[in-house]
Amino acid sequence: MATNADTVSKPSVLLQDMEEVKKVFERFDTNGDGKISSEELAGVMKALGSDNSPDEISRMMDELDADKDGFINLQEFASFCKGDSSTDGGSKEIHEVFALYDQDHDGFISVTELHKILSRLGERCSVHDCENMIKSVDSDGDGSVSFEEFKKMMTNNKKPGA
């Protein structure tokens, strides 16, 4: 996830409820201690294919670590996820997430790419499971997910004006 020195992108359109937020938090908290360290954050970003510098990771941590204890707890993570959308309605964040999954940068998420990313994140799902996930979003039936299909899926539960 690209960041600048002033802000960290807030994926508010991506995480709709606390249960979803908790699942993502637990995926980041690899040692299960109830908090995300800068090393854990860096590891997840790397697994997603994002090559963040130590300075970028440090800026992310500074932005998210509200109580300045050096870790991100569930409450801080939830606040980040529920934060306000950027002025473009979250489109930038959706592009960033799409790019993480679109490993070959061809503008589509294939079954293979989805399986690869989910496996890197420790998800136990088969290629068949990934095919079904792709089919559920693939409105034109081409066997992959375009950015427009991905954006529609990611904003599907978002209420107008929210």
Rank of each mutant, 00 (worst) to 15 (best):
I36D: 05
E39D: 15
V145N: 05
G143T: 00
D55T: 08
L100D: 05
F108N: 03
Q16G: 01
N132R: 12
I134F: 11
G122L: 03
K159V: 03
T87N: 15
T3G: 00
D129R: 13
G49P: 07
M45W: 13
A66E: 05
E96H: 01
Y101N: 04
N132S: 05
V21F: 08
E19R: 12
G43W: 03
V8N: 02
G70A: 13
V97D: 01
K135Q: 12
K135Y: 07
N4A: 04
L114C: 08
V13F: 08
I94L: 14
A47N: 06
K151F: 14
E56P: 00
N4R: 04
E76H: 02
A78T: 13
H128F: 12
P11V: 03
E76V: 00
K82E: 00
M18T: 12
V145K: 12
N4T: 15
S79V: 03
S79W: 12
P160K: 15
N156A: 11
F77V: 12
M153A: 14
R59D: 15
D65E: 09
L121C: 13
G90V: 07
E131W: 05
A66C: 02
D6V: 00
D69P: 04
S37Q: 15
I109C: 12
L118W: 05
S144A: 14
D17W: 14
I36Q: 15
N31A: 01
V111Y: 08
S9E: 01
G161R: 09
K92A: 13
S119K: 12
K152R: 15
E131H: 06
S86A: 11
G107C: 07
A42I: 00
D104Y: 09
H115L: 12
S58P: 03
T30L: 10
G43H: 01
V97Q: 06
M45A: 14
L64Q: 07
R120A: 10
E40F: 05
G49N: 09
S12K: 05
K22Q: 11
G122T: 00
D142H: 06
D129Y: 11
E131Q: 14
L64T: 02
S38P: 03
D29H: 03
F108P: 00
T30R: 14
G161F: 09
P11K: 06
P160N: 15
K35L: 04
L100Y: 00
Q75K: 10
F25T: 00
S9P: 06
K152T: 04
N31P: 00
F77Q: 08
F71R: 09
D62Y: 11
K46H: 14
V24C: 14
R59P: 01
K116M: 10
V21P: 02
T155E: 09
D102A: 01
N156L: 13
